[in-house]
Amino acid sequence: MRRRIPIIITFIVGTALIMAMFIPHTPFSSLDENLSVYFDIIAVFAFILGGGNLLRVHLEKIQKKKRDWQFSIVTVVGFLFMLIIGFFKVGGPPGLSGDFLAEGSWFRFMFEAVFNPLQATMFSLLAFFVASAAYRAFRAKTKEATILLIAAFIILVGRTPIGHYFTSWLPKQLDFLHVPTLASWIMGWPNTAGQRAIMIGIALGVIATSLRIILGIERPYLGAEK
């Protein structure tokens, strides 16, 4: 019951979706569509599970006064406040029947004032870490590293106005050496070749792993417990 039923569910769902690819007619065509909606609904329950777990972890941290427990209060308060104003559509013009992200609602305000700036700044912070990684990666010690460095440099310079001015003096016959042209060529041909080799390799791996999972050979999601 604990192990066999999950394996059967995986087999039925996986096989039905593969059948839908080969038999795109009723009932398989609608099955494909319905299973996709089922998946989205279960994903929302997964979000709820994540929220519940977050609350449990931080409340425990506050209760036991673990290290930095004061910041857990910020997480819990931020979480509950955002949740309540979102679920009850607080401040929105038409009340509960309106859009939860309607202009003027508190949820919208929190999205614009807190969520959006925090998310964008977190990702922009990576620019500094990428710069520090670049410093280490861009030391052309080997032939491979030199190729990586040259490709990255051409792409970076070729997609900015400075790249245009760099080689704008070149005669028409040598236009293929113009940095933006070179950048486009690298993106269009050698980069595509590498991407395709990687994609074909990944596809083979995904196909093989999917089959192993559907057939019950690979079952890591069941865990070690009986």
């Binding site: 910041f71 997480t75 979480f79 509950l80 949740l83 979102g86 679920f87 969520f115 925090l118 998310q119």
Partner: peptide, 22 residues
Amino acid sequence: FAEHLFVGVSAAYWMVVGVWGT
């Protein structure tokens, strides 16, 4: 402070979007 606030607010944001949207 900002990091912890982001964790709480984003978890709630995606929950609300999931509930009302799906």
